[in-house]
């Protein structure tokens, strides 16, 4: 016989896998759905232009939300630091359009690591 705690762990595991499978199916559903309908869309059409704008608005919303209203580890960093580091990276990016992706990324990432290091040292 299993202890009740073991039973609940087993159920929990099964529940987690069920949630994972459902979430993966839901995610693939949108991808497959997109492929299915993509045959009806001409890339020079007005519909394509509208869909592009909607997609960019969505991914911009997601990206900025992750940076400014994060959950988990990033939420332990003050918003002023996240915002400041992002702005510095953007300025580097704009300083020479098309050629500064790597430096901008490195400066931004190391900026955050540096903040963590300093906090580690002080705390």
């Amino acid at each position: 016989m299993l202890e009740s705690s073991e039973l609940s762990t087993m159920f929990n595991d099964a529940g987690m896998w069920a949630a994972l499978i459902a979430a993966c199916v839901g995610t693939y559903f949108w991808r497959g759905f997109g492929v299915y309908f993509s045959g009806k869309i001409n890339q020079d059409s007005e519909l394509f232009k509208w869909l592009s704008a909607v997609t960019y608005a969505m991914v911009a919303a997601l990206t900025v939300r992750i940076i400014l209203l994060p959950v988990g580890l990033l939420a332990t960093v003050p918003i002023s630091v996240r915002l400041g580091v992002s702005i510095v990276a953007l300025i580097i990016m704009y300083s020479k359009p098309g050629e500064r992706m790597i430096p901008a990324l490195l400066v931004g990432t190391f900026g955050l690591v540096l903040y963590g290091l300093v906090m580690n040292f002080l705390g």
């Binding site: 839901g26 949108w30 991808r31 759905f33 997109g34 492929v35 993509s38 001409n42 997609t55």
Partner: peptide
Amino acid sequence: ATRFFTMCLTLFP
């Protein structure tokens, strides 16, 4: 994941 729908609608054409 809804974004994948319009991402695919703008990629595959």
